[in-house]
Amino acid sequence: MPSLPETSSAKPDVVAPAKDAATVMLLRDTAAADGIEVFLQHRVGAMAFAAGMTVFPGGGVDKRDADASVSWAGPEPARWATWFGCSDSLARALVCAAVREMFEESGVLLAGSSDAAVTDTSRYADERAALVSRQLSLAGFLADAGLTLRADLLRPWANWVTPEAETRRYDARFFVAVLPEGQEADGATTEAESSGWQRPLAAIADAEAGRRALMPPTWCILRELADYPTAAAVLAECEARESIPKITPRIAVDGDSIRVELP
């Protein structure tokens, strides 16, 4: 497993706070029905965090993501708060951030009516651009479009926190979602130089061969996903979880060697 892209040889005197973030593993079954594929993006080299890394769509929580006016279908914020061990307000913001970030970075929108997701997201291209530029909030977009956020199309998977030795840190909650019928993931974002579907083990093989770089959370989660034959099986696994443990790796320095240790 690789080390993190940004490392420090010593723990800083002041530990940087970890910014709340949401990441989504978008899944689909393969055409041959013999496994799953996950949507991955190769980040551009100029990014401040995880530059050049292959990642799942996601990003930091915007303060407007906690807007309680969002029309909501699915598990209530209190349930998400139990899963992730946080406040109801933060849980709402995390789910909204997951939906917003995935739409911004992949064009996939987990919203629609209370019982069906939209099938054509191209009609919301202008709104997508306005979300990216922060000219529009998710709540404002959904309200204007008459859409309901479909929290029931998301499931909780993991919670990773950047090591304390790093100067830029995130408390990232990882969600799972299945590509809604009729939608396509386009990866049209300035944050990635390329995007596409890949089997989890194939992505790991690319990293082992030096063709791609994976951060430890991405590597570990891809390995976990590889054990499931279908997207439905992944969702079923999530249903059985009462809570999501927080994982904070530690950077260990041994001479000239730097490694990431998991708890």
Rank of each mutant, 00 (worst) to 15 (best):
V178E: 03
S137P: 09
T162R: 04
A129W: 08
A185R: 00
S133E: 14
A177Q: 08
E127Y: 11
S137W: 06
R128M: 09
L179F: 15
A111E: 01
T148R: 12
P163I: 12
D186N: 15
F174A: 05
S122M: 12
R150L: 05
E191R: 10
Q183A: 07
E164V: 09
A143Y: 14
A111W: 02
D120T: 08
T189L: 13
D186H: 15
P156G: 04
F174P: 04
R123P: 14
Q135W: 06
E164F: 13
R150V: 11
F141M: 11
A139P: 14
R173D: 03
L110S: 02
G140V: 03
E193M: 12
A151N: 01
A111S: 12
L153C: 09
E181Q: 12
R168V: 12
L131E: 00
R155Q: 03
A143W: 04
A192I: 06
S137M: 10
E164A: 15
L136Y: 04
R123N: 12
D126Y: 15
A177F: 03
P156T: 04
R173F: 03
T119K: 09
F174M: 13
F175P: 02
S133R: 14
V176E: 01
E191S: 14
T167Y: 14
T190I: 11
A143K: 14
D126E: 15
D152S: 06
E193A: 06
A130C: 12
A158D: 07
W157I: 01
V178Y: 00
G146S: 12
E166P: 10
W157T: 00
R134W: 10
R128I: 11
L110R: 00
T148E: 08
T121L: 02
D144A: 12
E181I: 08
S114W: 05
G187E: 01
A188R: 09
D152Q: 11
L136D: 06
G187M: 04
E193F: 06
A116P: 10
L110Q: 03
L110C: 03
L109R: 02
P156A: 00
Y124C: 09
L149I: 07
G182F: 11
R168L: 12
V118P: 03
T189S: 08
S113Y: 07
A151Y: 03
T190S: 14
R134I: 15
D144Y: 07
D144T: 08
S137C: 15
L153A: 04
L154S: 00
R173M: 09
L131A: 02
D152R: 03
L147D: 05
A185I: 08
L138D: 01
A130S: 14
V178P: 00
G182N: 07
S122V: 13
R169E: 01
E184N: 11
A129H: 10
E184S: 15
E164R: 15
A158R: 09
R168C: 08
L149R: 01
L149E: 08
G146M: 09
R150H: 06
V176I: 13
N159S: 09
L179A: 05
A151G: 06
